[in-house]
Amino acid sequence: MVTFEHVTKTYQRRNVGLEDVSVNIEAGEFVSIVGQSGSGKTTFAKLIIAEEKADKGHITIGGWNITHIKHHEIPTLRRQIGVVFQDFKLLPKKTLFENVAFALEVAGERATRIKSVVPQVLKIVGLEQKMDRYPDQVSGGEQQRVVIARALVHRPKLLVADEPTGNLDSINAQEIIALLKKINEFGTTVVLVTHNREIVNMLHKRVITLDHGHVIADQQAGKYLL
């Protein structure tokens, strides 16, 4: 599903994001990318959704080599990947329904399908009663569930969650992780970028540990090493 071959990404002033990283994530896997701040976790996620481009190496997503992806092809890639952000990234002037619907609208989905699918997805994340509210009218945990609903609504084969629990208390964090596990059980590949030791140790799933842009460990049913 996701293949990184000798990928290097360097930022300005020679700040290393990733250096010679080779990783292969199979379809249906639940993989945690862990590491301390500045280890390259977020760069890894950004490279998957083409928010950044690799300086060296090759990146393949679902058989599509996106190393030199053209600007106009990026929306097509992103419509096939669900993304969950730490800071939610919800559109503040749109209702919860409209935020979720937006992911389908950009893809040109029919209005009738949007009207039937969006409430179903919001029901899965437990927000069908609040779909007419605006993001600032619900809690942080609920906002993150809307983000998950938006990431799921177009049924992506890959879900990238970049620190999805970073802004949440432990109860809400557990709920979000439970939701991600459930999504994975339905066959979606989940890439969880986190530095939350507790969550990683509880998952008993594959863990890739990054440090200063290098992969220092890749364990099946692993634990948080650092």
Partner: peptide, 16 residues
Amino acid sequence: REEIGIMKLVGASDAF
């Protein structure tokens, strides 16, 4: 500008 960024990350084309 942040909303524009969000729209792009969700898969909206430049024209959209």
